[in-house]
Each structure stands twice: as C-alpha cells, then as structure tokens.
Amino acid sequence: MLTAKNLAFSYDNAKPVLDGFSLSLKAGEVVSLLGPSGCGKSTVLRIVSGLLDAEQGRVEWHSDPDVAFVFQDPALMPWASIEQNVALPSRLSGKVDDSRVAEALAAVNLTSLEKRFPAMLSGGQRMRASVARALSANPSTLLMDEPFAALDEILRFQMNDLLLDLVAERGFGVLFVTHSLFEAAYLSDRVLVMQEGKVAGEVIPSLDRSLTPNAQRGSSAFVSAVDAMTTLLKVIEQ
C-alpha cells in the first residue's frame, strides 16, 4: 500500500542523509529500519509522513495515505488529560469521535486513567497513551521512531507484544525505526539495514508466532536473524 522509490534528501546542502532509498510496506506488515545513528532512518519517516519533502524520488500510496506518528518521547500535552491527549487527532480534524477514543484507550489498557494528567503517569503508561493517540487517528500506516527506546526491558517487551496484537487485530502497516537488533528481530516481518542513506540489506526473521514470546526469542530463526543483521552492520562498519 506504500512504496517509496529512490528517495534523496540532505539537510542544509550537507552530505546527503538519504541517497537512493527505497522501500515498500503492505497492510498488516511490520518493517523495521535499522542502522547506525545518522544513517537517515528518522528522515525516512518524516518524508513518508509528509513532514518533509524528498529532494528526489517519490512516495506512492496505494491506499488512503493516513499516517499516525509515535516518537521516542511520548510528546503528550502536559496541560491536557490523557483522554484529551488521545482525542487530539480527531479534535484537530474536526470529527470528534468519543467511541474511537474510548476504544483506543481500552486497546492500550488505560481506560481507568483517562482523567489523569500525563505528569501523574509512569513512563510506560505515558508511552501507551502516546500509542493510543496514534490509534485514535485510525491510521492505515503507523510510523514509529524508536518509540520504546527509553523504556526498561520488561516494559519494552510488553509494548512489543501489544504492538503485534494491535497489528494483527487492526491490520495497519508499521514502519518502525529502532537501534535494537533484538527488537527488530522480534517485531518485524522484514528488517531493512540502512547504510549511508540507502538499504544495505534485508533480513526476514520469519518467527513462528504460535510460540510464546520467550520461545520465539530463543528460537533458531530469531538467532539467525540477529546474526544476519550483525553481519550486515559489521560490513557497514568496515
């Protein structure tokens, strides 16, 4: 439903951040972008979302281009309740839909805290609120920029499973930027390893989703996916 072809971009005429980057994303698919800092991962998300315009290449949509964004920082409005924060996308579009907001809050298990303000919540709860806000926009594509990087490992595992459940349930596509090999291997249908503004290689973990989360993380498919990514990243370093 989304194809990006030969994207090129540079900030302030410096060395190009993206140079001939391409990707495709299908509905219900999780694609991770993995690579060293400054390889252009976040720039891809900004171009796909329309916040930035590519200098070359183009982004093609084969469905409604409605995207939602989740950042590493929950980026909640501190002066608004969780419910008001989650309702932000519908409020801005002028179509306030209470049932959709309630549904999004329920999906991340925050219904009981909807009247609280962000400062009263834990880091994990705030991130769930941030995901709920994205869900309430009812996106066909979810763009996530290292969303769980600031969480501790137990919370990150929980958020990973929550995300996989939501994808299975709602069928949106996810473009996921991460620094973590393990997170990429666990979440993704495909991992794009990036180098100097383009895709250096693709890894397909193909985990057996019928296993428990820990069994998946201990499976040989998981280990060889991590191995393949490590090899690609080592080649990049040299």
């Binding site: 979302s49 329309g50 995207v67 964004f69 920082d73 980026a75 932000l88 996308p89 801005l92 926009a137």
Partner: peptide
C-alpha cells in the same frame, strides 16, 4: 513549544 507535538499538529492538519 515541543517540536514533536508541533509536528503532530502539522501531521493531523491543525
């Protein structure tokens, strides 16, 4: 103003 929030306002067509 929080840069991420500002981006969200742009993205959701404020």
């Amino acid at each position: 103003v929080d840069a991420n929030l500002s981006d969200l306002f742009t993205l959701y067509g404020a």
